[in-house]
Design a protein around this nucleic acid. Structure first.
Length: 772
DNA sequence: GATAATCCGGTTTTT
DNA sequence: CCGGATTATC
């Protein structure tokens, strides 16, 4: 337990909640005259205090960037626990990422000590697993079900598709998977598909829905779940077993939700069911930072909170303690261009904050010049004594980091790219995990298939096919079937003996479970299977790294008591690679930067087509544009002191040079808070330099031609912009003899990508269409 | 059953 | 232009 700290500014509190949180630990009678203020309330502004102390009833905390969201969340937990309003296990606190969950747990533990351990605090998925394991049989699973990762999901889906003879031309596995996930995001089980007009209306006889149903059946047979299922099954559980729901409604006196703007429909329903018990739900979020609609997040959830929870109190946190007034003004002005927001304006939280520097906007000739400029600025900052780690380059898409990396390498500046392939996603790790899974549970068919011929054992498709047949016929697992086949004559001698060795190996490793330290066991398995040797003998440049990764995997086992607890953990917590320490510039995507902050932020690639990304606009039109704008807002608000935005007039995309127009977002920044600079002769040649504050240096050259502005619709792609001479351009309405009316999405030479009103998106030759 | 040829596509990402 | 994935060929 923490010692009660004395609060220097324990003045008479305007919030007379004042139950002494430490009364039970300190038998001394509380002195009513000077009730010391709870330590977690110290230093909070009035809005933050309200958000912390309004514990009863539904509360929506609209928390702008840099307004102390995490602080409020943890203080609120401390308020409930410290004030003895509930026991730790009666609190449910959900986050989206493990990182956020861990951070919150640490901070609450620092405030109120060990009781923090017992709070139901975790990601939506982790909490769902916890509930689901207890009641698995009620939804047709066993409590030791395995959780599939995306790779396994895909394989399973492909199997189902093969069985159904699905034409992969009309229904690519990816598209079906997307459809299935989309259903799951909205809490739609296979039996509900179509009943509400969802799916099955694509003129395809409901094929996707059929696949969905079969896929779910396969998952149940395998005693497995994909990520979406964790929520979906819990939802089903709650809906079909009211007594179970009632139990949790009863248990959770207080519910806290972080990043509420990122919840999807399934999560929303899940929360609403649980909250119906005590109605003490507090959701914290920022509609202006909703950037995940493409993976199912419903910004509507946060927009309609008040109508969902009548009598809800809405608290706005608008005092920003992070950025300079210049940055705040620019970000606020930009985001004000969005319709459909709850409305919030960031204001400087510190009264005497210095203005800081205006946002610097640089136009350059091409991507290389852009990288040179940014890295040059980084060097200047370093010369002034700024740490590399306080500077970040935030890009729209991952591939954009490449040019900066090259420049940073040539200038020998250490950097770190955040968000590459994650550790667990690497093939060698997944293979190794499959070995461990198979040893842990031999019935795991997916693990079996993954490694049966890895390293090569001469057990290819043909053998696997026989095993599949035997498994089906005998209604046993693949591994069991394999075992049986080693004593029959169905396989050729070669395959038979190879298979025999494999089965014997797995059996032997399995017999060592529990007897041997699990780390040694893992080492043994990877050695004896020949898997490590496979990579050692591999000549490819990345092979040594893979061997190293395997070593790391085994080292990581140390933190766990046994293999099973490790495997369960791995499925849910897919940690990023250990981040190499040291003072390094950070390169990452805007999405990855959410929640982080830096002194100096570089925002390159502000060009139409790149940012806002053409695809976002094509797919979702105006709402897509608004999400891109929120992304820009997220980028700007990451900076504490300095922002530099750059854009290039020419850029090489897929090996081809394209010219690009400055992003429309640049026009949406307030002149008072920016300084614009551009290279000589960017778009025409002979442009004047260094015009002066708040003005484009050469207006006529700079500004997008008026004609182009009008004809360029929201969906203009950069390719279209690069071909002004083409007869047909993006956004045009056309008619096709066979497919009917449609809208041109992209012009690629003489090929057009057209979204037909009735026939879907198709690629056709320009000669076959006529202007509508 | 393994390698070579070819085709396609190409934001954002957590769990 | 590049890399992954599917297909063609030995």
């Amino acid at each position: 337990m923490m010692p009660p700290m004395s609060d220097p500014k324990a003045t008479a509190s305007a919030f007379p909640d004042s139950t002494d949180p430490f009364a039970l630990d300190e038998p001394a009678p509380p002195s009513p005259a000077a009730a010391p203020e709870a330590p977690w309330l110290a230093g909070l502004n009035p809005e933050q205090r309200a958000a912390v102390t309004t514990t009863e009833g539904p509360v929506l905390v609209l928390s702008g960037a840099g307004t102390g969201k995490t602080r409020v969340l943890t203080a609120r937990l401390a308020q409930i626990l410290g004030g003895r309003l509930a026991q730790p296990w009666q609190i449910l606190a959900v986050t989206f990422t493990n990182r956020a969950a861990r951070e919150m747990r640490e901070r609450v533990a620092a405030l109120i000590g060990p009781p923090a351990e017992s709070v139901w605090l975790g990601t939506f998925h982790a909490i769902a697993v916890r509930i689901l394991r207890r009641h698995a049989e009620l939804v047709g699973l066993k409590s030791n079900f395995t959780i599939l990762d995306t790779d396994d999901q895909m394989r399973l889906l492909k199997q189902v598709m093969e069985g159904e003879r699905v034409d992969t031309k009309t229904w690519p596995a990816q598209a079906l998977m997307a459809a299935i996930q989309h259903w799951k995001d909205r809490g739609i089980t296979p039996d509900k598909v179509g009943s509400d007009g969802e799916g099955g209306n694509e003129g395809d006889g409901g094929k996707p829905a059929t696949i969905y149903r079969l896929y779910q059946e396969r998952l149940l047979t395998l005693n497995a779940c994909d990520f979406g299922d964790l929520l979906l099954h819990t939802l089903t559980l709650f809906l079909t077993h009211p007594e179970v729901l009632a139990r949790y409604q009863d248990q959770f006196h207080y519910i806290l939700v972080d990043e509420y703007q990122d919840t999807n429909l399934a999560q929303y329903l899940w929360l609403r069911l649980l909250a119906q018990g005590r109605r003490n739900i507090c959701c914290v979020g920022d509609d202006d930072q909703s950037i995940y609609s493409w993976r199912g997040a419903e910004i509507g959830n946060i927009l309609k909170f008040e109508s969902d929870f009548p009598g809800a109190r809405v608290i706005r946190l608008e005092s920003n303690y992070r950025s300079t007034p210049h940055i705040l003004a620019a970000a606020s002005h930009l985001i004000a261009h969005n319709a459909g927001r709850l409305g919030k304006t960031l204001r400087p939280g510190l009264a005497n904050a210095d203005q800081g520097r205006a946002i610097q906007i640089h136009g350059v000739r091409d991507g290389e010049a852009e990288a040179r400029l940014v890295v040059g600025e980084i060097e200047k900052r370093v010369a002034l004594g700024e740490k590399l780690a306080s500077m970040a380059v935030l890009v729209r898409a991952g591939f954009q980091t490449r040019e900066f990396e090259e420049r940073l390498i040539t200038t020998a500046i250490p950097y770190r790219v955040v968000g590459g392939p994650r550790f667990y996603e690497r093939a060698e790790i997944r293979d190794a995990l499959a070995y461990l899974r198979l040893v842990s549970s031999p019935d795991n068919g997916l693990a079996f298939e993954r490694i049966i011929n890895l390293p090569r054992r001469g057990l290819g498709e043909a053998t696997l096919h026989v095993i599949h047949g035997a498994a089906r016929a005998g209604n046993v697992s693949l591994f069991e079937a394999a075992r049986q086949l080693t004593v029959t004559d169905e396989l050729k001698p070669r395959a038979r003996s190879a298979l025999g060795r494999f089965v014997a190996d797995v059996d032997r490793w399995r017999s060592m479970l529990g007897g041997v330290d699990h780390r040694d066991l893992a080492t043994t398995i990877l050695d004896e299977s020949g898997y490590v040797d496979m990579w050692r003998n591999d000549k490819s440049p990345e092979a040594p790294g893979r061997v190293e990764n395997l070593r790391e995997l085994v080292a990581g086992l140390e933190e766990f008591d046994d293999l099973d607890s490790f495997l369960d953990h791995v499925a849910l917590v897919m940690e990023n690679d250990a981040q190499a320490g040291g003072d390094r510039v950070v390169l990452m995507t805007l999405h990855g930067a959410k929640g982080l902050e830096f002194d100096t932020v570089f925002l390159p690639g502000w060009e139409e087509g790149v940012f806002p990304h053409a695809r976002a606009l094509d797919q979702s039109g105006e709402s897509g544009l608004e999400e891109e704008r929120r992304l820009a807002y997220v980028g700007l608000t990451r900076a504490r002191r300095r922002v530099t935005i750059t854009f290039a007039a020419n850029r090489r995309i897929y090996g081809q040079w394209q010219n690009a127009l400055p992003s429309r977002f640049l026009d949406e920044l307030p002149e008072d808070n920016v300084e614009r600079h551009n290279e000589t002769g960017l778009y025409a040649g002979g442009a004047a330099e260094w015009g002066g504050s708040g003005r484009w240096d050469e207006e006529a050259v700079w500004r997008r031609p008026a004609a182009e502005r009008q004809t360029a619709p929201a969906a203009t792609s950069w390719k279209a912009a690069a071909r002004p001479g083409a007869a047909v351009k993006a956004g045009d309405r056309i008619h096709h003899d066979k497919f009917g009316p449609g809208t041109v999405h992209m012009v690629d030479g003489d090929k057009l990508v057209i979204a037909f009103d009735h026939a879907g998106v198709k690629k056709v030759l320009a000669g076959f269409v006529t202007p509508a």
